[in-house]
Design a protein around this nucleic acid. Sequence first.
DNA 1: GCCAACGTTGGC
DNA 2: GCCAACGTTGGC
Length: 169
Amino acid sequence: MSTSKKNSKTPRLWLVKSEPEAFSWQHLWDAPSRRTHWDGIRNYQVRNFIRDDIKKGDLLLYYHSNAKPPGVVGYAEVVREAYPDHTQFDPKDGHYDSKSDPADPRWLMFDLKAKKKLRQFVPLQDLKDNSKLKDMLVVQRGQRLSIQPVTLAEWREVLKMGGLEAATR
DNA sequence: GCCAACGTTGGC
DNA sequence: GCCAACGTTGGC
């Protein structure tokens, strides 16, 4: 799945899911420097994205899952690449992993910064109704990855639906 | 609250 | 290495 050897200078495009009750777009926007650690990832496929593919300068659609309705709120930028997720070593943390070796941490996180809120919220239903987005991962049935790659065409279409210019940077 | 889809775990 | 059981995700 890794493509890190090529295109290392090209910002890649992603969608990140967040439950607004856990960490909403507004919460991120109000954070110091509009920045946070993206911790708590405990899925190997997503871990590999973080380890191999998510680079500084990459852009991420910010998606509210388990929301009423779910949908895309804004976009953010990667400001720090993969480093160990400290919550895996904290027995009091809900994401504690007793099997992770501190000398070789199993789980990684990265930092992101909110860039721009969409002028209009784009609900999942609108993504589903748009034939140009029929291959987008987030509209696929049973697609549970909390970080998903997004193509340039999809990125542009979603931003357009959100009332923003389709500039990627 | 329901439940389909999917990932992980662990017995064998 | 198979696969049943279990836990989680997340739309509805």
